[in-house]
Amino acid sequence: MTLPLAQRGSTRLRAGSARRRVAIRGLTGTLLFVLILEAVPRLGLVNPAYLPPFSEIMVALGAQAATPAFWTLLGQTVFGWFTGLIIALVAGIALGMFIGSLKWVREATHSTIEFLRPIPSVALIPLAVILFGTDMRSTLLLVVYATFWQVLIQVLSGVQDVDPIARETARSYRFRPLTQLRSLVWPTALPYVMTGVRLGASVALILEITGELVIGSPGIGKQIVLSQTAGQVATMYAFVIVAGMLGVAVNLGTRLLERRVLRWHTSIRRDQEGSP
């Protein structure tokens, strides 16, 4: 797979210009979308009371961003999301490694996991409210519950994926069980763990906003409802946009992390292969 240097260079150049073209198209699309959002209410196609022009939403967002309260709310949402994600990750990874490593535990827990996993997290809202009221912990419970399964299922598949030859290699060199877990099982499971992190981070954000919205625990989600009841439609949209931007940031962040952690993995290494 080694191309002559000149050719390889031009491939890279071509790839670069292709990427630029995609970026330009993406930007054009976004601009068009914003223009439509601006034009539709101004032309009277929809009632501006339900959908204010985009510029008004931006003005409302600017006004919000200027207040310290906004940043406190944003901080509360991010804190709730992150805490829930970390708890789910630690629990999912630890339990997943344990359950996945022992065949009989895996078989004994399989049916229970398959029963608990499909329960929609939001179905637990009444329970959460009974336990913690409208406290942040109510939402945290939902976030942890939903995210935990995402992580656990991935870790379980990851632990199963150890290559038999790699396993025999480790055994033939007399690796102790703990060394096998650390130097073979964990790196094998890591790509799955990263998928769990990526899916879990998105699910955690959805549940965080849902919890705030429905239960009324403090954060961006609660602010969406409050603006709506106060009739501040532009502000409501401003918070919706903030929630959306959080989602984009979470996705970008986890992808970046994935690329860093899995340098060696087939899905990432394609561009460096065959060039020692």
Partner: peptide, 15 residues
């Protein structure tokens, strides 16, 4: 004792 397997690609740890 050491073993060298036919499947070198799977016997070496890619990480």
């Amino acid at each position: 004792m050491a073993i060298v397997f036919q499947e070198y690609g799977r016997s070496l740890f890619p990480w």
